[in-house]
Design a protein around this nucleic acid. Sequence first.
DNA 1: GATGAATGAGAATTCATTCAT
DNA 2: AATGAATGAATTCTCATTCAT
Lengths: 197, 197, 197, 197
Amino acid sequence: MAKPNIVQKNDLIQSAKACLVEKGIERFTLRAVAEMAGVTQGTVYYHFRTKEQLFLEVVKDICDRSWDDLTRTDDNFIQEAIASAKSRCSYDSFYHKLFLTLIVSGFHHEQIREQLGEILMKENRVLTDHLSRLWREESPVEGVSFETWGIMLNAIVDGLAIQALLSKDFPVEKTYEELEHFFKAMTAHTAGEEEKE
Amino acid sequence: MAKPNIVQKNDLIQSAKACLVEKGIERFTLRAVAEMAGVTQGTVYYHFRTKEQLFLEVVKDICDRSWDDLTRTDDNFIQEAIASAKSRCSYDSFYHKLFLTLIVSGFHHEQIREQLGEILMKENRVLTDHLSRLWREESPVEGVSFETWGIMLNAIVDGLAIQALLSKDFPVEKTYEELEHFFKAMTAHTAGEEEKE
Amino acid sequence: MAKPNIVQKNDLIQSAKACLVEKGIERFTLRAVAEMAGVTQGTVYYHFRTKEQLFLEVVKDICDRSWDDLTRTDDNFIQEAIASAKSRCSYDSFYHKLFLTLIVSGFHHEQIREQLGEILMKENRVLTDHLSRLWREESPVEGVSFETWGIMLNAIVDGLAIQALLSKDFPVEKTYEELEHFFKAMTAHTAGEEEKE
Amino acid sequence: MAKPNIVQKNDLIQSAKACLVEKGIERFTLRAVAEMAGVTQGTVYYHFRTKEQLFLEVVKDICDRSWDDLTRTDDNFIQEAIASAKSRCSYDSFYHKLFLTLIVSGFHHEQIREQLGEILMKENRVLTDHLSRLWREESPVEGVSFETWGIMLNAIVDGLAIQALLSKDFPVEKTYEELEHFFKAMTAHTAGEEEKE
DNA sequence: GATGAATGAGAATTCATTCAT
DNA sequence: AATGAATGAATTCTCATTCAT
């Protein structure tokens, strides 16, 4: 139903993301966003009253998309989550460049920081739930709660992304293969223990 | 015996770090650095020919310090590394705010990116070495190489830092306790298996 | 029986006046006028082809109202004029804020300047006439013509308004009381002199 | 001692005044000020951090000059004050255009408003003092205090200025001649009354 | 070594105005 | 009659950088 010839706010938000990744925070100018979207600066200001507002709407967009991803349920959730993380783990990862850029900008913008924090916590919770289901409520390592497993898995994904972003030589394939292996081993371990009973 | 102007230069670098953390990349201006150091803008230019040069020296400073930390050897290296990581894991962590800020700025500055990448890889290697020594060359989980264990541990530290930076409620204590527990369990596991032999 | 669009036009003019007083010339924007009137910018353009046109109609409106005030005749005109002036003489006087704002804008807009000048001259003439009638064609001070008396009275009213606008402590009551006293004394003086003859 | 080739703040303030009068508040831009002073916009910002700051310093300058004028004492103060007022009373009066422009801008800037208010009150007081001395503490019209005489005289000067600014035909000469006449008559009146004693 | 005045390029932002609907 | 999207020119303001002293 989008009218032709009318620049949609959404187009501008997508352009803003691209600019943010292409140019970085420092050179993220509304002029660049406008040019990328093929409109004038005035148009950007018509839709977003300030640069900050546009920024916020970019974050909101990211969070909404993330939310949608998290709410689909699936039996192979953990495996798929790892596969998805792997696919986004690279030297040029648009996703992680954007995410880290927003995190850093969040250090000086409480609203952004909170929103990103909420998404991360939500991810933690969803991972925790799925791991707990996968492992039938029994942690493979005594003294390590499911909550912590969820937090760890999430942390690993972000930590690996950073390493991949910073080093062209980072062994994405090998690392993710062994990460999957590790989780399978943990799963086998819990299954094995149950069998013993 | 450091010459006075070297002292000055170092002051400026420390001021630059503080500015970077306090104001963020966007508002990281040479004027702010000068003010914080109690000198004029001209003085900054006397020591660093451009803003970029100052930036690079900040990165170099970070890397040098990191290097120093890594080259001290110690029997309890892993435990101490985790303890140190925990102590820097908070909502207001100067260290991680600075580190992430530099990482993000590295996305558009190859030289910075490479230097930070090298440090991370060096960390991976050192962790790998120490884990391999701790576990007497036997990985606690079959199919997971020591290299990957090192990478993972490093990733976890960064990933947890991000979570702590974004959420006031992040359970730093509990998570690190259980992380230590996990590594102890892994250590016990390898020790146990060896005993069996 | 006024047509609806004439009502609208008038609403816009009143909103424009309010904006002018509330925000001042510098921030007198058509957007603000539109918002205050509860319409969109486009609507303002439907009624007035340019910002200048709206401005001119505001001036015209002021002048028309002023004209109406002046043309009512009354035996106590002078006394009532002073009373009316006093009532509009305050730190927050909408009337004088608007009037002075328009005067200042008139410095760079000949048409406005002329219209405002004409109103002032008309006021002078009306005051002159009434004083001359009140004083039976005999000036209370030899060598001071009725024309000058009219000009003076008008000048005093504006000059006092400025003082009241700029100082919260300006003694409006006392000053106007003594001003009335002064004119009564002048009136008594002329009456007295006539009696002597 | 002013260094050559270094644009003095004061030059900029004088340029600002000229711009304000030439272009009016609406078109009073820092670019125009810079051009008039023969420097770049950056220079203006080096000396005054904001447009508002420049504005304030213009007001301060006006007030300081006014203050200096008022503090010189003189036996013929009143006569000279009237002569001075007359000389500044014209259709093109730089002084009054500037003063009124600042007054109007003061409606939305408390600091400016206060400063201008203080100057006016100071003028009132000085006029009051001199009139009281001139008339040997006896008001020429009973019931009209010296304070009110001072206020009135000041109001008349401003009010006449407005009339002159708005009408090319305003009879400056005649009006001021009769105004002087009036004050002389009042003076004679008090002197006469004393003689009677 | 250090300073402060000055610059100029470019940033965010505002706003009168146009126009298709 | 009225709207709202879009424009573009102008404005305030920032900042890295230069340079004479």
